[in-house]
Amino acid sequence: MKKATLSPYILWSSLFIIVPLLLVVYYSVTIETPEGIELSLENFKKFFEPIYLKVLWRSIILALISTVICLILGYPAALILAGKSFKRSNTLIMLFMLPMWMNFLLRTYAWLTLLEKNGLVNMIFQAIGLQPLNILYTETAVILGMVYNFLPFMVLPIYSVVSKIDRSIIEAAEDLGANSLIVFLRIILPLSIPGVVSGITMVFMPAVTTFVISRLLGGGQFMLIGNLIEQQFLFVGDWGFGSAISVVMILVILVSIGFMSRFENEEQGGRLW
């Protein structure tokens, strides 16, 4: 009976999880020629043309910039929330999580309303006598959208690691004469690294694969790797090339996970998934 309960899932996951991925790999390493289908690395070679490499490069750079901004904004926030400045930090953490649960598309769309030419941001800027800000459909808007969407992913893992630090370690350091700077540098910072690592992963991954933010806030002119995949499948119809880019994307993700997991400390429980 125990086997019987598992078999529908085994069937389902083979057909809808394993086979599709194998198909992606299959299309990425074959090309259609007049004589039939041939094994070839042509699709990957195409990806390494300068024009497409630039897209990959841009995606990685924009995702990195957003990750760094999230880290700079989020790290202090996580420390403050884990500290004693607030009486109800649980409620505040809930409030940090709320926007994360809301539809990602709508959160991005909200910025479209704010940033457009006669949107609220420009109205306010004009009212206080500033130049109108025309950042919609620029890289700045894409970065803003990424930071806005993914900032909670940075704050939460760092918070959950820092709030678990044993107070007595800090007190011991203080008893031994450490000032708050030394306490931070020698205790809090090293102990928070697992949280920082999973924060970076959780921001970088969705940022590097997005195609919605770049489409809505970048106006289609700032093509990222996600947009390239979308275009190959929906408009160009070049499945081989689209699959090759998908394989590259999976590799980027796997490499990042592998790289990050070397820094992870199982016992600290900084992981969120």
Binding site: M97, M100, W101, F104, N149, F150, F153, L156, T201, M202, M205, P206, A207, T209, T210, V212, I253, G269, R271, L272, W273
Partner: peptide
């Protein structure tokens, strides 16, 4: 244990995806 929390925090993005990792 940890698992419940993992899911609730990793709920979305989504990302999405936002996708990304967590079906964030």
């Amino acid at each position: 244990n940890g698992k419940n929390k993992e899911i609730s925090l990793g709920a979305r993005d989504s990302s999405g995806g936002g996708g990304g990792l967590l079906r964030i």
